[in-house]
Design a protein around this nucleic acid. Structure first.
Lengths: 339, 339
DNA sequence: CTGAAAGCGCTAACAA
DNA sequence: TTGTTAGCGCTTTCAG
């Protein structure tokens, strides 16, 4: 329980604590011989500078906090990996906290990090709800913050987001080009901006290509494989299957494919399926999943870089990075005779 | 940049800082009227107690650190979720740090957490290597630490591990019972205890059932789908395919299945495949993957509970929880005519 | 019920 | 090149 402190080291060597401090921060003049001696004995004694005390006096940790809704899916895990890659090179350590998709938990996490142990923080919000105002106040007070993913484009802050509307539009158009005639969009929960944006993109494509109202539909489904399976089962039961599904994410798409296959439908010959995000698994299943690649690594990297800029200069103008994706054409949406 | 401190609040109300402190910790006698007033104005001013300072004087945060090799695969992500579930109920916040499979990074992470911002720490080590000694020293010094997963059974510390040897043995026996006659084990990297333990279990089963040496083999493969694919391609090229694969994890197994299918082999009729871990995806692919379920949630939960015990009483005897898994029998290892 | 003051471990002027 | 000392923001005894 007892930490060895700078004092213990100083006493042992009969020198002052400031000399020990200098040895560990090697930026003040100090005889290299004493420095070596100090470092050596300190290590022997098992001394390690207490970061808490350091922070309190220096007003600087070299920690960056990252708050995400969850990291059980690859999406945020990959973003975090990218953030870490950039910031570790610059001498920072990364502390990650999960909000569990709970805005209150998110707020607490951010508070702990920002008031306590982090010089800056990257937030992937759960919702673009009430917390945002608090965050903006913190930014104004000088705390570097960068937002990622689930934020409104209009938010005046450093942020990196994905152009969900556009790529949902493109994904839908891909299905249309494959001559699928009746397309259902299995959407994410409607309280997510990313969800509504994808719905918008889907509808836009439908309108552009003049699909009659009865030939397309948006079904609020969710983000889990199970939820996709349930919806498909229900549609089968009601004899209301479309000839293509555009799913909110890959996991839902995989659930859809599985249920379709189990019920004797061939994907993509009978029914096409399109995912969103491009997870690792999407090319390991059969048929391989056609999807939209979201540049998770790029998102993380850019967020980290925006944060570094803020750390260097607190008064820069907020920047927004809107990222593009890529259609990953694979079997699951390939109609055999699309003539 | 300027935080509002306890001093500012005290000055504003013309009271002492200790009174303000009391108001926020409501454990000392304080007139409820003054308390309310303080809390109210403090909130208005945007005051939030600085956790760093709190920790320095109290020697207690309510943070628990969790250090894992990575959380891009479900395995550790699920463990973390379980830990969080237990500890949040007890008023702790969880700080997660990734070691990136690098022992040095791991050591730094642990140091930051333990000396700095965490009352206790759960470590899922990258290797059971040199760092362990340092950790044991910390435990002796009174820092609560619990180990998870990649640790030797002989380590005298609080830990929760999985009985890899046993379940690797059972997995192998399952393949044997299915009458597969030539079985290759695609092993994890050999410097991982979990890897060598699974190899041991595999060999033990082979010996028990008197498989001739030429009918089984251990191939160091890794933990990625790509690595599984490469090995299978190589075996196909060398005309050295077995009639069953027992893979180090599900991801490798999925890579194996994919490559086999692409090369015209039927799984499980021509070749059986068995995974390890039971990821979400394993039942979404076809054929569904037969695997061993590792109780990730249970592991996290128990680790958290062991930590809580240590937090309450620093001098308890170290406990070891060795967990069992479960065979999840699915298509990929079902031989049609196993008579 | 409230205030004064010491101290948590460290940094960073300022002296020497 | 080294030592002395005043904080960093908070808790917690000890007086009052």
């Amino acid at each position: 329980m007892k930490h060895i402190t700078i004092k213990d080291v100083a006493k042992k060597l009969n020198i002052s604590i400031s000399t020990v401090s200098r040895a560990f921060n090697n930026k003040y003049d100090i005889k290299s011989k004493t420095k070596d001696l100090i470092l050596k004995t300190a290590t022997e004694m098992g001394y390690f500078p207490n970061p808490i005390a350091k922070k309190l006096s220096q007003q600087k940790t070299f920690n960056i906090g990252v708050v995400v809704p969850e990291f059980i899916t690859e999406f945020y895990a990959e973003i975090i990996v990218a953030i870490q890659e950039v910031l570790i090179k610059r001498g920072f350590q990364i502390l990650v906290m999960q909000s569990d998709n709970q805005p209150e938990t998110e707020l607490n996490n951010v508070k702990t990090l920002i008031y306590g142990m982090a010089d800056g923080i990257i937030i992937a919000p759960t919702l673009d709800g009430d917390n945002i105002e608090f965050y903006l106040k913190q930014i104004k007070a000088g705390h570097p913050i960068v937002f990622v993913n689930r934020v409104r484009e209009s938010l005046n802050a450093n942020k990196v987001i994905f152009d969900n509307k556009k790529w949902s539009f493109f994904a839908t158009e891909h299905l249309i080009r494959q001559k699928y005639k009746k397309i259902y969009h299995l959407a994410a929960y409607k309280n997510l901006t990313v969800g509504t944006d994808r719905i918008d993109g889907f509808k836009k494509a439908m309108k552009k290509h003049k699909f009659p109202e009865e030939n397309y539909q948006v079904i609020e489904t969710g983000l889990l494989a199970k939820e996709g399976m349930d919806v498909v089962e229900d549609l089968i039961y009601r004899h209301d299957l479309p000839d293509a599904f555009f799913c909110a994410n890959d996991l839902v798409a995989m659930g859809v494919i599985k249920t379709l296959k189990e019920n004797g439908y061939n994907v993509p010959n009978d029914i096409g399926v399109m995912g969103f995000t491009d997870t690792q698994m999407s090319e390991l299943i059969s048929p391989q999943l056609c999807t939209v690649k979201q540049p998770t690594f790029e998102m993380g990297k850019l967020a980290a870089e925006l944060l570094l800029k803020q750390l260097d200069n607190h008064n820069i103008e907020p920047e927004t990075k809107i990222l593009n994706g890529k259609l990953i054409i694979r079997e699951s949406s390939k109609r055999p005779n699309n003539n």
